[in-house]
């Protein structure tokens, strides 16, 4: 187990290097960051050259990349062009997005799995059909539609919630955006759980559990659900990464100043250090989430052993 983790961590190094290098090249190769700083006006050539030298922009891309990586490992993500350290942006943005993602994940787990179990055990009945229909609707309607709709109806029209989240983003204000963010994955978790439960409910070990005289609830939770969760956990694991990065739309709608918001601003303003910095952290989040999922497999299914 320990050796497996070490091996997996080592495997992450090339993946990490490859993805960050790609991002780095794409961000710095497209457009000129120095020009972008000056907006519409053409910069004074001397100033531009000075800035290029300061940000190492006059060196070849691979050298820039190595210098950047060296800085990152000392905890220096560089400064945004307005002089604000990127780490400072991160320290305000990540906690907000983390709270939002956690709310979404908890909603997905509780409601997705519960709905999946209920429908999986009653396949073809009215409950099943109506939930299935709802998941289809949720999957086909994009988040910006549901998000804006919820914001308009609950926030503007009925005034139940504040239409925009305050900069501090307390959990209470994030609840509804969390629901909006969770909806799509919630639909997938429901469908995955439903399929898995319905398939496993005819398994021999379920019949054995019934023959042992166990109560229905115990058969469902301890025997059936335990076996059915494996594909769901995989999905949830990869979804952690998606929720961290993909909250872009939701964060824009509700004006939440999290990772998606900062990334969006960084891209629009060609603020390269911000974009590369945030994406680097997201790459690490993805990699770790995948490792944790793989380790969870072994916990859920003892037939899987890592050597």
């Amino acid at each position: 187990m320990g050796r497996y983790v070490v091996r997996r961590l080592l495997q992450m190094v090339p993946v990490f290097a490859g993805t960050t290098f790609l991002i780095f090249v794409m961000v710095y190769a497209v457009g000129d960051p120095v020009n972008a700083m000056f907006g519409e006006r053409a910069p004074d050539p001397a100033t531009a050259a000075q800035l290029r030298a300061e940000f190492n922009l006059d060196k070849p891309v691979w050298q820039q990349y190595l210098l950047y990586m060296a800085d990152i490992f000392t905890g220096d993500f560089g400064n945004a062009f307005n002089g604000q350290p990127v780490t400072q942006l991160m320290s305000t943005a990540f906690p907000v997005t983390l709270r939002l993602a956690l709310i979404a994940i908890v909603i997905e787990i509780i409601f997705g799995i519960a709905l999946g179990v209920v429908t999986g055990l009653r396949r073809g009945r009215p409950v099943d059909s109506s939930v299935l229909m709802m998941t289809l609707i949720v999957i086909s309607v994009p988040t910006f539609v549901t998000g804006t709709l919820v914001q308009y109806v609950l926030g503007v029209k009925w005034g139940w919630i504040a239409p925009a989240v305050s900069p501090a983003a307390p959990v209470g204000e994030l609840l509804l955006p969390g629901v909006v963010l969770a909806l799509l994955s919630l639909a997938y978790v429901t469908r995955l759980t439903r399929a898995s439960i319905s398939e496993n409910s005819r398994a021999d070990y379920v019949r054995t559990a019934l023959a042992k005289g166990l109560p229905r609830s115990r058969v469902t939770v301890r025997h059936l659900l335990r076996n059915s969760l494996i594909p769901v956990v995989t999905f949830l694991g990869t979804d952690v990464g998606n929720l961290m990065a993909g909250a872009l739309v939701t964060e824009r709608i509700f004006n939440i100043q999290g990772v998606g918001f900062q990334l969006w601003q960084g891209i629009v303003r060609q603020n390269s250090p911000t974009v590369v910095g945030f994406v680097t952290i997201l790459v690490i989040v993805f990699l770790l989430a995948n490792l944790i999922v793989d380790l969870l497999y072994a916990v859920l299914d003892p037939r899987i052993r890592y050597a």
Binding site: A203, D204, Y205, R207, T208, A209, A211, R222, H223, R226, N227, L300, D301, P302, R303
Partner: peptide, 12 residues
């Protein structure tokens, strides 16, 4: 039951 491998719960 007939086939103990499938009749026993694999994860317990």
């Amino acid at each position: 039951f007939q086939d103990a491998l499938s009749a026993l719960n694999p994860v317990l």
